[in-house]
Design a protein around this nucleic acid. Structure first.
Length: 600
RNA sequence: UGGGGAUUCGUCUAGUGGUAGGACGACAGACUCUGGAUCUGUAAGCCGAGGUUCGAAUCCUCGAUCCCCAGCCA
């Protein structure tokens, strides 16, 4: 929340935060009006058919922040009504990702349920330690849902339809052509009940019949043209096994799951706006005793240079374009985590982008800002040379080693200092030396000087080349009085570069990640093949990197700033004791790169 | 051309009849032993046309453009 813009009245402090998005305002109004006994209960209802991505994070943050703000609850619920696409692998990843994202922030609002309980009553996971808990499952309510369906039949508000899928489509009409009533629309309650029970008993094949709501085939809203409520699927369900061969559709299951769990505000994305009349119709048709939940819609996240559809992300994986759901180039929470994004930075990002009904395209720089901001404050600075160029200091004794003091984080004095070894042979970055430098290049050039970070001023006195002309070694000298903190240390030198001592450094693999696509909207347009826009440079693996000694002990997942280069984290999977592998999370802002891009 | 939504700097977002503000990005400068961080400054916007009003981003009318809906997916 930003600060109030209101002027203080008298000696009173400024008023409470004023920037509230429309969902927040709705909830505040409902609490004010005493709806639901002033209670707020939201839910995050992913379908376990893929991994959670940054778009889900927006929804998670929204739902949990509302629960948090109003002292309410937020249920984690698997929206698992389609057995053919769902899997326990996804259930587990979703649990982990949600927990990771909200940990220490909204975990008090999180509601799970006692293992095996199907009542829809939640428990606080952190307030009931030791208790076996699990997410809510829409599939836990299949029994209750079935009863509601029979109730609807008895009320004459639903019927069994024998139309084939193709016929059903034809009868439905099109947006500007009214539908026609199904010939089975006026079956008796008794016949409907009998048929429905036999559907459940497994007497019919997949697709042979459906249960449909009896609403209005001439409605301008297609979702009100007798929508299918139940379909036959002889399939094993990841949570209910072989217990059922009929499964409820989303529209039937979702509103009722909300009702069963006592959800007050059912927040979803814009594409469900046209379903809202159906959400309300089902709940009202059942004439339920308790106050009903209501659905609200917000715009899903679109982020530049990436994809935000589970189907397309799965395609990337199946075509081996990425290595898995947690490939650091993926916009999944597991991918971002592995890339080095903190939960904090993602929450900050979600707060920054706001919540509206405008379907926009969020600039990727906003996400980069969030992680840079976070890591700038927290990450320890280290020196690492990605593409080494050997430097021999001719006026430095061969057997001498000095330990130089370096600060761990200039943004945080409490992070302390460390000692780094300096010796006659060093590595510097190939990019930090140029024989024929362009204007404004102020690093090392033949005959020129540069400051070695935390060490001496270095002068290049000779360049050794391979037969092919490639520079293989720099012969240099140091100004012995120029040691950081020394007598002539304050001599002004334009450039400062990083380095490592050749005999002390650790060799490591570093993976340089870049955006996955070359265009902002790889899936824009009617039928685009987003693979055409894959960025061939989205991953570059460097195996000859030389890092300062302390990095040998980097812990999996630990983040650092490699000075002048960017933020890197030790890969959680491939880092082994003494043998780290680093992922570049994000580069530092690079004024030099910008300078180079300028036309001239 | 049926229905449902949306439209404010390049991007995201405030504003609810009374000076269009913030953030990112861009640009310029200061500072800097990270071309980082930090600081300062600059440019940049109400989809359009009418109307109501002393006064309109805001209210009314008519247009324009974009998104969503014709799964027995969610």
């Amino acid at each position: 929340m930003s600060n109030s813009t209101e002027k203080p009245t008298g000696s009173e402090p400024a008023a409470a935060p004023v920037h509230r998005h429309f969902i927040h305002e709705t909830l505040a109004r409902d609490v004010e009006a005493g709806r639901h006994g002033k209670r707020i209960a939201t839910r995050f209802p992913p379908e376990p058919n893929g991994y959670l991505h940054i778009g889900h994070a927006k929804s998670i943050c929204l739902n949990f922040s509302m629960a948090r703000e109003f002292g309410g609850t937020c249920n984690l619920r698997m929206d698992d009504t389609n057995p053919t696409r769902e899997d326990v692998e996804y259930v587990e990843s979703i649990r982990e990702d949600v927990r990771w994202l909200i940990q220490g922030w909204a975990d008090k609002s999180l509601r799970l349920k006692k293992q095996g309980d199907a009542s829809g009553v939640g428990v606080s996971a952190i307030e009931s330690p030791g208790q076996a808990v699990e997410p809510f499952y829409a599939s836990d309510y299949f029994g209750a849902l079935y009863e509601y369906a029979e109730t609807l039949i008895r009320k004459g508000k639903a019927y069994i339809c024998d139309l084939t899928p193709e016929e059903t489509e034809k009868y439905r009409g099109s947006p500007d052509v009214k539908g026609q009533d199904s010939p089975y629309r006026n079956r008796s309650v008794e016949e409907n009940l009998d048929l429905f029970r036999r559907m459940r008993a497994g007497e019919f094949k997949d697709g042979a019949r459906t249960l449909r709501a009896k609403i209005d085939m001439s409605s301008p809203n297609i979702w009100l043209r007798d929508p299918v409520l139940y379909r036959i699927r002889h399939a094993e369900h990841h949570h209910t096994g072989r217990q059922w061969c009929i499964y409820p559709m989303y529209d039937f299951a979702h509103c009722l799951s909300d009702y069963i769990e006592g959800i007050t505000h059912s927040i979803c994305t814009l594409e469900f706006e046209v379903h809202r009349p159906l959400y309300d119709w089902i709940l009202q048709a059942l004439e339920l005793p308790r106050e009903l939940p209501r659905q609200y819609e917000f715009a899903r996240l679109n982020l530049g240079y990436t994809l935000m559809s589970k189907r397309k992300l799965l395609q990337l994986l199946q075509e081996n374009i990425v290595t898995g759901w947690d490939d650091p180039r993926m916009p999944t929470l597991s991918g971002l985590r592995r890339r080095g994004f903190s939960a904090d930075s993602i929450r900050k990002f979600c707060e920054r982008i706001g919540v509206t009904k405008y379907n926009g395209l969020t600039d990727a720089s906003l996400l980069e800002l969030s992680i840079r901001e976070d890591l700038n404050a927290r990450a320890h600075r280290v020196m690492g040379v990605l593409r080494p160029l050997e430097v021999v200091i001719e006026n430095y004794p061969e057997d001498k080693v000095e330990l130089l003091e370096a600060v761990n984080n200039p943004e945080d004095p409490s992070a302390g200092t460390r000692q780094i070894p300096f010796s006659r042979v060093l590595y510097i970055e190939q990019d930090d030396f140029m024989e024929n430098p362009p204007k404004k290049f102020f690093r090392l050039v033949p005959g020129g000087e540069v400051r070695l970070r935390y060490a001496y001023i270095l002068k290049c006195v000779g360049v050794d080349k391979a037969p092919d002309g490639r520079v293989v070694r720099l012969r240099c000298t140091i100004d012995p009085d120029s040691k950081s903190g020394g007598s002539t240390a304050s001599r002004k030198i334009k450039g400062t570069i990083h380095w490592v001592s050749a005999s002390h450094c650790v060799q490591a693999e570093v993976r340089l990640y870049d955006r996955l696509f070359t265009v902002e909207e790889p899936d824009a347009g009617s039928n685009p093949d987003f693979r055409k826009f894959l960025n061939p440079m989205s991953l570059e693996v460097l195996t000859e990197c030389r890092l300062e000694p302390r990095l040998k002990d980097a812990q999996p997942g630990e983040s650092f700033q490699f000075e002048r280069l960017g933020y890197f984290c030790a890969d959680a999977k491939d880092t082994h004791p003494g043998k780290p592998v680093f992922n570049r999370t994000v580069t530092l802002r690079d004024g030099w790169a910008k300078e180079q891009q300028k036309p001239s």
